[in-house]
Amino acid sequence: MTEGTGVPLAAYQILAAVLFTIGVVGVLVRRSALVVFMSIELMLNAVNLSFVAFSREHGSLDGHIFVFFVMAVAAAEVAVGLAILVAIFRNRETANVDDVRLLKG
């Protein structure tokens, strides 16, 4: 529809998939809560990329709107999440997710 740069949709999708997988692995294997957070951001942005790519492909603005929502919510989530993280660190002197398991029976 638009005269593009010639980069095909599949390339965007592969990049998004790779980023998403890196994010998932990061969430699963890293111990530091801060890094886990960053990995989650990575996953979110992988999805954003996918949204934007589809949006451009179809010439529709819906994807962009989704992305704005995701970014807004992610910003809020990071604010709350970091606050919790700081509170945990102050109380327990650690940001390691394995050390925060008080609810385990």
């Binding site: 998932v24 969430v27 699963l28 997710v97 394995d98 398991r101 385990k104």
Partner: peptide
């Protein structure tokens, strides 16, 4: 069954994934 609940967040995340 209790033993399945390890308390490791990342293990839960793994199962979900």
């Amino acid at each position: 069954l209790r033993l399945a609940q390890t308390g490791y967040v990342q293990m839960y995340a793994m199962v979900i994934t």
